[in-house]
Amino acid sequence: MSSLEKSLMILKRLGDSPYELNLSELASHVGMGKSGAFKLINVMKKHNFVIQDPSSKKYHLGPIMLRLGNVYSRFKGIEQIAKPLLFRISKSFQETTYLTIWEGDRAFPAYKNSVKDGIYEYNDFIGMSLPLNSGASAMVLCAYQDPGHIREILGSMKLEKRTSKTMTDLDQLMDEYRIIRERGYALEDETFSLGILSIAVPVFDKDRRVWSCLALAAPKAHATDGNVDEWIQALKEGAEELSYNLQFRH
């Protein structure tokens, strides 16, 4: 059994009654010596997965477990609300829609609704980390994070030039993020893939923070001034609906 498996067993054991155990009890539970168990627990203590009571010296689950549980619950709710919403917008315009989330320093598509013969119909990019310098969803999520944090992230990575239109200059990107914030949405034209145009709008929580966005991708040939405006409006209304239904805004 690996150290990771033993660590997970310890966490699961602390999730059952009596919810706090001493070092000997935890070591016995995973079938290892106290010194080995102590090393595993110390790593988990360092990252707030486990807390030791200073009086009893027993261990119990740490505060990060509450946050992770809330995250799971939140995204469980999102799935139930976002999927019908994505389906409805896709059906209205016969274009692909998706929901992308921000996780620390990365953007990940979480849910997608494809249409027959539409963009990304057979490309299952759900859960994949997106480049932060191309594509509407990653761009809009970056735009609404702390600029200093984003500059630090981008400065630490090699920015891929996916097409001739992809921006790789840091100052140019930061200026583009500012423009996105000012107009309230991202519209990218072939920065991620040639022949594809995408739009993304932020989803705000009750504190006006942005951790996800709604997006639509279409062949550039489908884009006209009239229907692009309709796409933007539908995404904005969808983002408001998502925020409201998840009780992020009141």
Results as ranks from 00 to 15, higher is better:
62 G>F: 03
107 A>L: 06
99 L>R: 04
8 L>N: 09
233 Q>F: 11
138 A>I: 04
166 T>D: 11
41 I>C: 15
31 G>T: 13
90 S>A: 09
183 R>C: 08
43 V>R: 01
96 T>K: 08
242 L>H: 03
173 L>P: 02
200 A>P: 05
220 K>V: 06
142 C>M: 09
177 Y>L: 12
221 A>I: 15
81 I>L: 03
206 K>W: 00
124 D>G: 13
91 K>Q: 15
22 N>E: 06
212 S>G: 03
94 Q>A: 14
147 P>Y: 08
45 K>R: 14
105 D>M: 00
58 K>V: 14
69 G>N: 08
107 A>F: 12
19 Y>Q: 06
178 R>T: 01
161 K>V: 00
196 I>G: 00
215 A>N: 06
132 L>G: 05
213 C>D: 07
138 A>Q: 05
144 Y>G: 01
202 P>H: 02
163 T>V: 09
55 S>T: 03
172 Q>V: 08
152 E>Q: 11
159 L>Y: 05
67 R>I: 15
187 L>Q: 10
134 S>G: 13
129 S>H: 00
66 L>R: 12
60 H>D: 05
63 P>Q: 10
90 S>G: 14
33 G>R: 09
81 I>P: 00
94 Q>M: 14
194 L>F: 12
128 M>K: 15
57 K>E: 13
143 A>V: 13
11 L>F: 11
192 F>A: 12
223 A>I: 15
138 A>N: 04
101 I>G: 11
33 G>Q: 10
71 V>Y: 10
238 G>T: 08
190 E>I: 14
45 K>P: 11
55 S>M: 08
5 E>T: 15
78 I>Y: 10
186 A>Q: 04
160 E>G: 07
58 K>Y: 13
133 N>H: 08
167 M>S: 02
245 N>P: 09
162 R>G: 05
191 T>H: 01
131 P>R: 07
24 S>G: 11
242 L>F: 01
59 Y>D: 02
75 F>D: 09
6 K>R: 15
68 L>G: 04
164 S>D: 02
208 R>E: 11
221 A>Q: 14
112 K>F: 02
186 A>F: 05
40 L>N: 08
243 S>C: 02
67 R>D: 15
150 I>P: 03
148 G>H: 04
182 E>C: 10
99 L>T: 13
233 Q>V: 10
235 L>V: 04
216 L>Y: 09
30 V>A: 07
182 E>I: 06
65 M>K: 10
70 N>S: 04
76 K>P: 01
125 F>A: 11
33 G>P: 03
126 I>M: 09
234 A>P: 10
10 I>C: 11
232 I>H: 02
89 I>S: 07
65 M>P: 00
161 K>Q: 11
73 S>Y: 01
136 A>T: 05
